[in-house]
Amino acid sequence: MKRIFISLISKFYTSLTGLASVLIIFIVAIILGNIIYNGLPGISWKFLTNAPETGMTGGGIFPAIFATVALVILMTLVVLPLGVFTAIYLHEYASQGSKYVYWVRLAIHNLAGVPSIVFGLFGLGFFIQFIGKNIDNIFFAHTLVYGQPAIIWAALTLALLTLPTVVVTTEEALRAVPDSFREAAYALGATRWQMVRHVVLPQAIGGILTGGILAVSRGAGEVAPIMFTGVAYYLPYLPTQLNHQFMHLGYHIYVLATQSPDVEVTKPILYSTVLVLLVLTVCLNFVAILIRTKTRQRLRGER
């Protein structure tokens, strides 16, 4: 009797945890379904390639798409080398267990936990008001060129924000390369950098790519850090220089959703913009996950 009771109770709790899982899948499906259902009708070639018209109630979102991509590319150019080098340092160069390595790791973990709005404040205080202002004072005779919100400052701010992602995934990839590979390279007389460059990095390229893509996906969706560092609601031109301001998909969503005089009129455009941003970030995420799974399988197969 007691046995049946225990097994019943166990079954009950087990199904509770199952219910939680199913509920999560259900919620994700609802969010995506709602956005796709309402957003898809508004997606057209014209929507993707035209500028906004008639006070944001018509036209397309091309400038926002263009600038978001440009921003993310700039960010990647900074964060990828920096993050990969840091990971190489941590895993290939530093003596494991040293105090300094501990501090670097601690810094990375804490950088990952800093609220995104604080990155925005930092971008404003450091990049614009300190670096930018000083560049202007020294090279441009105190005229305002770089000491103002601009795409380069926003990209640098985002690079800092996404740095932990790149470092952590790259280090994971480096860890997956067997030590026998390194020993073989050393035995052939390779220097440390030759070993890293020709043996470890080619093996870890999948993991590094994953980190890069995850960083891009994260960077494309973040709005808070760029609010004070360069984003603009509407611009009649595309950002073609480093010190231009820019439009942004995420910021576009924020403004359309909160500051529109008539939400019902802007709703179709709003939904379609959300869908575009979502497709951009989610597709990138899935590509990253795919590469990671493939790499893991390959490494497992080799051992």
Binding site: I31, G221, V282
Partner: peptide
Amino acid sequence: AIELLAGVPSVVLGFFGL
């Protein structure tokens, strides 16, 4: 499903909430 949710930008979740 969880990884998908992790990939949704916070501005989209904010939009969904609003």
